[in-house]
Write a protein that binds this DNA or RNA. Structure first.
Length: 287
DNA sequence: CGATACACCTGTGTGC
DNA sequence: TGCACACAGGTGTATC
């Protein structure tokens, strides 16, 4: 469940269970995910207090009071679920009712406040690593990332400068995490639609006004999606089991052959494949 | 350097 | 019901 809005939703869901709370036990149920877990993982987590839970792009960063930071990436299918928080207790019941451990629960953190946090990832494209907090920004997975699209560094002038002269299709540039960090297939498609840019158009051949519209569209669609609790495709859930609902607001993503939602547009949404990923767009609105 | 293909995995939906 | 196949929210690595 992983583009920026989904990861931010996960962060907000985890924060009450994790921030300021000590990890009393770390259950490591396999050797690793995309890469092997760092050596001595359980021992390095157990007893540590999570001072702060942050997000950088699609990465979750837990700053621990041990001087290390835990980095988590959810890959394509990763989920984090919280159970047993006091605030979710059924009145009158004093024991912590945790759901049974599920298939693909690879790491389970038992927190001092009674919460249990499970990192579930069926496809195992996710990652978990530990690194000294002072050096976390230099982590190979973080070092090359572009600016946060919701941060101050990002805007139309930045985007124009980075796309100038580029022959790659706009869609590919949107997905390039070195330019802007956090967009994935859904929000790249949705932002291009809002800015009326054809996904196959060469990035360097887009005028200033469209680039301006695109920078605005990127921020708007991400903010709206965060507000909606992200998008839930298939069975994905927020940390408390609830569904995000931004998928109901998709204008083009996963809408092949459905009518374009622009008023008075009679075209239907098209799907093409670009660098192995589906791109959805309106052939009439996007040029 | 830039652009593309492929790799890693499991689960689900579709069509025969 | 079974089976083959396409496809799925990502990204590092190899290859031109």
């Amino acid at each position: 469940m992983p583009e920026l809005p989904e990861v931010e939703t996960v962060r907000r869901g985890l924060a009450p269970a994790m921030e300021g709370v000590r990890i009393i036990r770390a259950e490591i149920r396999r050797e690793g995910l995309r890469w092997p877990f760092p050596s001595g993982l359980a021992g390095r987590l157990e007893g540590a207090r999570v001072d702060r839970l942050r997000r950088r792009s699609k990465y979750l960063l837990s700053d621990l009071d041990t001087g290390e930071t835990m980095l988590v990436h959810l890959g394509m299918s990763g989920r984090m679920t919280v159970s047993g928080l006091a605030t979710t207790h059924v009145p009158g019941r004093f024991h912590r009712a945790h759901p049974p451990v599920e298939k693909h629960d690879h790491v389970i953190l038992h927190m001092e406040n009674g919460a249990r946090i499970a990192f579930n990832d069926a496809r195992r494209f996710g990652a978990l690593d530990l690194r000294a907090s002072t050096a976390i920004d230099a982590h190979p997975l973080l070092a090359g990332l572009g600016p946060e699209p919701l941060g101050n560094e990002f805007g139309a002038p930045y985007l124009a400068a980075r796309w100038r002269g580029r022959k790659a299709p706009a869609k590919a540039l949107m997905m390039d995490q070195r330019i802007v960090a956090g967009l994935g297939n859904i929000y790249a498609c949705e932002a291009l639609f809002r800015a009326r840019i054809h996904p196959a158009r060469a990035g360097g051949r887009i005028g200033a006004a469209r680039i301006e519209a695109l920078a605005h569209a990127i921020r708007a669609v991400l903010l709206e999606a965060i507000e909606a609790g992200g998008s839930s495709l298939r069975d994905h859930r927020q940390t408390d089991g609830k569904l995000g609902y931004f998928q109901h607001n998709f204008r083009v993503y996963d809408r092949q052959d459905l009518p374009c939602t622009t008023p008075d547009c009679t075209a239907t949404v098209r799907r093409i494949v670009q660098s192995g990923r589906s791109s959805y767009y309106c052939p009439a609105c996007q040029r």
